[in-house]
Design a protein around this nucleic acid. Sequence first.
DNA 1: CATCGTCTATCTACTAGTAGATAGTTTCAC
DNA 2: GTGAAACTATCTACTAGTAGATAGACGATG
Lengths: 191, 191
Amino acid sequence: MEKSTSQQILDVAQDMVRSRGYSAFSYADISERIGIRKASIHYHFPSKDELVLKLVQYYREAFSRSCDRIVQSVASPQQQLMQFANLYRDGLRQGQICLCAMLTADFAVLPQAVQDEVQAFFQQTEAWLAALLQRGCEAKVWPCYPSPEVEAKGLIALLQGAQLLARGVEDSPAAFEQIVYPFLASRLSKA
Amino acid sequence: MEKSTSQQILDVAQDMVRSRGYSAFSYADISERIGIRKASIHYHFPSKDELVLKLVQYYREAFSRSCDRIVQSVASPQQQLMQFANLYRDGLRQGQICLCAMLTADFAVLPQAVQDEVQAFFQQTEAWLAALLQRGCEAKVWPCYPSPEVEAKGLIALLQGAQLLARGVEDSPAAFEQIVYPFLASRLSKA
DNA sequence: CATCGTCTATCTACTAGTAGATAGTTTCAC
DNA sequence: GTGAAACTATCTACTAGTAGATAGACGATG
């Protein structure tokens, strides 16, 4: 069974926003990519704002599921942290950065509802990462820093900044790893 | 003496790109802000691409001068690093992030010449910061990490990511400090 | 008078969004 | 079951507005 039209629209829109940004993609672009007329896209998503809002909600759920999968499947906190970092690395192969990182750059031109959803994404991600850091601290696999929340914010900042810096380099995933891995190694080693 | 028209254009364009992004600002916006017709802006900068290219060159020079000032004026490497970090904090009050961070988000839609200039900016900044880290290491004010270049990349990634995360929060500069300062304190302490 | 900077007026291409029609499916009353 | 009504998903054709860009006129300055 093929994907529904609205799902195709969301997928293409996600790719475009993550690689080009909110202001640089249009209904005409989507229309061309999936072989459907502009008006048909408006049928599924009446306005661009609504499309992007749905997009962020959908992205937040998918990202949340990825985090759940990490928690459930893998043993050590170190491995979990590694997998979390690799979530940010993997989009780079297609020239994509985190949807909400891109939308944060475009923050000033977003409608309020989308801004709120982006903020909610970050709070959720920070909370998840802070919990992971806390588990690792309790399991004594890395040092206990004063505030797991602040530590989580710092890590997410690093991951997002590394995504930006890695763009425009020929081998983006490798550039990302070069920045992120030494940091993870030194910052979260047992000593 | 007032600023020249072309300088006014560059200043307004810089503000707009740093707050809204490349695709979300227009000649019409600039025209309105400085009270001049669109056609007059084309007289000074025939195309948007040329305007943005000049903008990045101008920004690179200005940023470079700020770095020079830091090197020359202040005593300790710690203070120099702090001032460098604060360069990234200060634009946040006006909702601005680093011009080249924004343009990296918009990377896919930029003409080649602008992409090259943005890359050059990062290389220059990394080199400057790596040199500062090396001086601090030799002066034994902080530990010597294996590669100052990689360390510099990581720091810049953190600063840019922190800028993104701090947007959309009510007091952005404070949010920026909350992320960056603990990191600088722990990562670059003498022990 | 010639250059500089600005203007008005215009252009083409594109933007998001709408109107109205249509083909195919589903629902439901009889 | 049949037929009417409603719904889904698409289309063509259009709107009003904006994008970057250009041609040519105008006034000032030196």
